[in-house]
């Protein structure tokens, strides 16, 4: 079939359109890719090359100075470790809670499930807002604790919808009935049948929560005060956007050097902060696409 299709001669108009499309896509590819390459290349260049703007596409005067500075900076290391903790703990908590809610709501025989689902989705449409939520977190005594990074955003409605849709469409009703005849309880069924069958969707949800946690900074900004609890993104904000210097007193020569280092450091930091996500990204890309599509069925 495909062979025959190719033989059909396309009109000039069709070929022109196709050429235009290829050109457009090539342009898009270039526009998206260039900033990424530029930043990676800058991060591997020498401080002088970056400070004088000589990097165009590839690294100039290859050096690892930026990375050396980063990996000896205690603030960044603490941030990195904190972010790792928040990501792992937050993802585990979020995935567990999401399944605990989504699975019961996927069962057709559960009384009241539509009411509960409505109350859950309603929070997507209307929310108390920043200050009222802050007041609750404060009255629970979570301000400036690690819990503030894990609890207030623990369950995302969107992920509940995705998981519920998946359970509804992939766990056949007959399987549930058969297991009940065999005397299998709901919990046993969830644990030994549903969860093993749902590995792909659990992976998708875990990945989405993990990326969200790794990239989050707003909750840290409003709830955390002690620097030793800061996630990487908040540390980055200080260095990258507010330009705060990391150590207090310095000698004049060190000041000049630091000035030169400042931009290089930023490029290297951007790479280091995005690395974990971008490294796993090509491998999990298809899962993400899948998750988005499952959500789209319902959405």
């Amino acid at each position: 079939m495909p062979v025959r299709r190719k033989r059909i001669r396309e009109s000039i108009g069709d070929r022109l359109l196709l050429a235009a499309i290829y050109t457009l896509l090539a342009l898009v590819l270039l526009v998206v890719l260039y900033p990424l390459i530029y930043i990676v290349s800058s991060s591997f260049s020498s401080p002088q090359a970056v400070a004088s703007g000589r990097v165009v596409l590839w690294p100039v005067e290859f050096s690892l100075r930026g990375y050396q500075v980063i990996f000896t900076n205690p603030q960044i290391l603490t941030g990195y470790l904190n972010s790792l903790f928040y990501t792992v703990a937050g993802t585990a908590l979020s995935v567990t809670l999401t399944i605990m809610l989504a699975y019961p709501l996927s069962r057709g025989t559960l009384f009241g499930r539509n009411t509960i689902m409505f109350l859950v989705t309603f929070t997507m449409l209307f929310s108390g807002g920043l200050i009222p939520t802050y007041m609750v977190v404060r009255s629970l005594g979570l301000i400036d604790t690690r819990w503030a990074m894990l609890l207030p955003q623990a369950v995302a409605v969107w992920q509940v919808i995705i998981a519920r849709t998946f359970f509804q469409t992939t766990i056949p009703e007959e399987l549930i009935e058969a297991s009940q005849l065999d005397g299998c309880s709901d919990l046993q069924f969830l644990w030994s049948v549903v969860l093993p069958l749902s590995r792909p969707i659990i992976a998708v949800i875990a990945l989405m929560y993990a990326v969200f946690q790794w990239n989050a900074y707003f909750d840290a900004l409003i709830y955390l005060k002690s620097a030793e609890l800061f996630p990487l993104q908040l540390v980055l904000r200080g260095i990258l956007i507010l330009n705060t210097t990391t150590s207090g007193s310095m000698e004049a020569s060190a000041m000049i050097e630091r000035q030169q280092m400042a931009d290089l450091l930023k490029y290297a930091l951007i790479v280091v902060a995005s690395l974990p996500v971008l490294l796993v990204y090509p491998f999990v890309q298809r899962y993400f696409v899948k998750g988005m599509l499952i959500g789209a069925i319902k959405g």
Binding site: L29, Q233, L236, I270, A273, Y281
Partner: peptide, 21 residues
């Protein structure tokens, strides 16, 4: 592959990229 990738960049990093570029 390339056009999906920026989705995974955090807001902080995105804004610093804008500021730098």
């Amino acid at each position: 592959l390339v056009t999906y990738a920026p989705y995974f960049i955090s807001t902080v990093v995105m804004v610093s990229m804008i500021l730098l570029l």
